[in-house]
Design a protein around this nucleic acid. Sequence first.
DNA 1: CGCCAACTTTCGGCAGGCTTACAGATTTGT
DNA 2: ACAAATCTGTAAGCCTGCCGAAAGTTGGCG
Lengths: 253, 253
Amino acid sequence: MLAETFVLSRSYIQTGKNNVHPPEERFPMRILLIEDDPSAADYVARGLSENGHICDVLADGTDGLFAATRESYDVLVVDRMIPGLDGLSLVRALRAAGRKTPVLFLTALGGIDDRVEGLEAGGDDYLTKPFAFAELMARVNALARRPPVQDVKTVLKVVDLELDLMRRQASRGGQVIDLLPKEFTLLEVLMRNEGRVVTRTMLLERVWDFHFDPKTSVVETHISRLRAKIDKPFEVALLHTLKNMGYSLYAPR
Amino acid sequence: MLAETFVLSRSYIQTGKNNVHPPEERFPMRILLIEDDPSAADYVARGLSENGHICDVLADGTDGLFAATRESYDVLVVDRMIPGLDGLSLVRALRAAGRKTPVLFLTALGGIDDRVEGLEAGGDDYLTKPFAFAELMARVNALARRPPVQDVKTVLKVVDLELDLMRRQASRGGQVIDLLPKEFTLLEVLMRNEGRVVTRTMLLERVWDFHFDPKTSVVETHISRLRAKIDKPFEVALLHTLKNMGYSLYAPR
DNA sequence: CGCCAACTTTCGGCAGGCTTACAGATTTGT
DNA sequence: ACAAATCTGTAAGCCTGCCGAAAGTTGGCG
């Protein structure tokens, strides 16, 4: 899975049409990590995905700039020392192109000069290696202008359906429901968009990190399995299909 | 000689005049850090001040005791190994003088005796080096919030599984279980997060202080060993795996 | 009646996690 | 200071159970 994120799909170009996200706060952040050291990259990527975010990784500066310009990421995490195009130039180019995506620099050097350089080039924050992951997460949150983790809602609720994000556990009407990982994130996305239509494309991006159409029925398959657990055993269905549009989670009236 | 060791504490002298704070929750906490390793001291002091608190730093035990007795700090953070007067004696002396200021010990080694001694001497909590700053901040907050006469929780409990932090000994259903040091801290982290998901990244940071991905199965290995001791011999398993997420310790329903 | 979109179920591959053995490191005892 | 014992991390192989492709079914709508 991590290996996959290393090879950023070339076909993400196709999704260009639909890269405008709804203005409301979206949960999983999309983060682009530009880092060539595999172990560091893995560490960060893994941590981010464990925290429910989507992380693309590129090891080369040129590719990084390309992706950062084309796609709309919430935050960029950029190593200063990378092959292709160094982090500093990358960000300068990005800013010159008018992109304001917040940038967090990772630097092996803790010198004051480095810091100044980075910020002057248009970086928003920096972090010297090695660092605790919690710190990176905190700074990324700060850059994305999100409230600190402590007062992030930990239990989602739609009617009598509850999803405890910390315990990773769902329940309906007090009855505990076991969910598989994919089912869990699928439900999470749906619940965070209660009442709104969630398109297939959104689901592919947020749950599967596919930036293209796999031309299969993965989504349907998992929707089906999810229904079997959260709707089938109960009176009223909460998950509704909207033909040719997508799905929506709400209480019928 | 005395003057020398006070070098770091310019703010201590200036703030001396106003040492009477309202008893309720006050925001900038005043914290005295007694630590001789400059880089560690910097790390902590910087972190505290970034969090808006006031931190005085002293590198010598004798000076530390003097300041701690004279001033009224909200919390003391004390390294066990310091020149002048060791941390243990410092706290004993402080308590003997009737001061109840909460004390957080920093100890390089997580040995049994270190912890027991520290708590017996009148310490309120301990933290083994190295640590993530966030953890120190959390513990300091906890200490400051705690009513002056404290009983440190010395035994963690999850269902019938107990972990005696003083004796460094685990037991389940009254049956004593021997744990190796790594297993002990691993279990401690898990128990302190009962019911919550503890990600692999968290474990790598808190138990191993790895700030990168070791790309090996250290965690799995130790989880396996821990399971063999705390779960295998018993009816119900308490330690559960969540694929791609981490582990969680809780009683099955 | 026929088409298309969505639903359901089955089933094999495989990734991620588990286990074990071993060797290096560290600690302890003499 | 040396040897013994203990502890820890790596690597290799196994195994489980999740995931997604595929094929067949349903149902809505023209």
